[in-house]
Write a protein that binds this DNA or RNA. Structure first.
Lengths: 184, 184
DNA sequence: GGGCGCATGTAATGAGTTACATGATTGA
DNA sequence: TCAATCATGTAACTCATTACATGCGCCC
């Protein structure tokens, strides 16, 4: 329901048409969601069907017709319910990158270091993207700050891993050694 | 492909039947995945079809027939490819809880604090679960450590939020004040 | 005798993505 | 004139989940 919450939260501040919403999300809110255009259109349709929002078709000049959405009373109620639900819960994060890590012994230490260094660079890139983005005030700024903290922690974590993997094995074995692998 | 990687990585160490695999995953690897039984069975089927693994039907005593899976050469190749891919990439984490946070001004500060405190307790619970779990050595221990670090950071983050939200507004407004809300 | 654990699956459902379709306007 | 932007959507597909179905053996 996060996506619905997001759309409701945005429409709550001002009426918007679909394209405007989806551009806003993809351009300015990529730090906290990656909802795609067609998914958003689909949800807007659905929420209109459920009476959470309604729309008016508007033609401005010679541009294509826009569906300008606005919240209904029912939508506001749902929004109030959804924010509370979202604020009160914690959804455990699953880090897909940990699966590879669990089997890191299957690759020679030297190569593992090379690969993790590549990962580190991706994290660094994401982090600098955030640091270079325009500063935001209030809750939206906090969301960015949260992501920034997380990325900093991830950098730190990869560094720890590199230290454990490489510095203890400066001269790698010629091949991965299955006898060094652990039990589960 | 993380789920495939996980199954391959486990089968690489020793042959196992489906139930054994899925129990292992649900009981011992819940920190890094939440793959469900039927999904795992489905994937095992698929991978057998693709020739990554093969199985032998074995009946032990009067128990139900087991499909004991083992890796093929092709499976080992895929595994090697998938670990490297996984180690080298970083998949940006999206925190669903940040959507609610972005709209936290829609609820009265006092209530927001109550809700975030509930969230904090859930995080604390997850953290103590991990701290009380048996200690693991090597890469698997690292994965647990990663999760533990993350949960600790999340606790810290919620505390920061609570400080910003509650301590600056010890006496809440009677209702949420839309004029305090921000632009996007 | 009843419930739990073992063991494998199917079917229905859901959420979301990619790729595609359409068509007009604007700017280089 | 050609590409990009605006604007909305559909269809096919992927991936995973939930709920359900089956059936035997073991233990209380």
């Amino acid at each position: 329901m996060e996506n619905e919450l997001l759309l409701l939260g945005l429409l709550r501040r001002q009426d918007m048409h679909g394209y405007q919403l989806t551009e806003l999300i993809e351009r300015n809110l990529s730090t906290c969601t990656d909802l795609k255009k067609s998914s958003a259109y689909f949800l807007l349709d659905k929420m209109a069907g459920d009476g959470w929002i309604r729309y008016e078709e508007v033609r401005e000049g010679k541009r294509p017709i826009r569906r300008v959405y606005s919240m209904t009373q029912k939508g506001e109620q749902e929004f109030q319910r959804l924010v509370r639900e979202n604020l009160a819960e914690y959804q455990p994060a699953v880090f897909g990158g940990d699966i590879g890590l669990a089997f890191v012994n299957a690759v020679p230490p030297q190569e593992a270091c090379r690969l993790l260094t590549a990962r580190k660079q991706e994290i660094e890139k994401a982090r600098s993207n955030i640091l270079n983005a325009p500063h935001r005030e209030g809750p939206l700024g906090w969301v960015v700050e949260h992501q920034e903290r997380h990325l900093t922690a991830e950098m730190d974590w990869v560094d720890t891993l590199l230290a454990r993997l490489c510095e203890t094995n400066p001269m790698p074995l010629s091949e991965s050694d299955p006898t060094q692998e652990e039990k589960i």
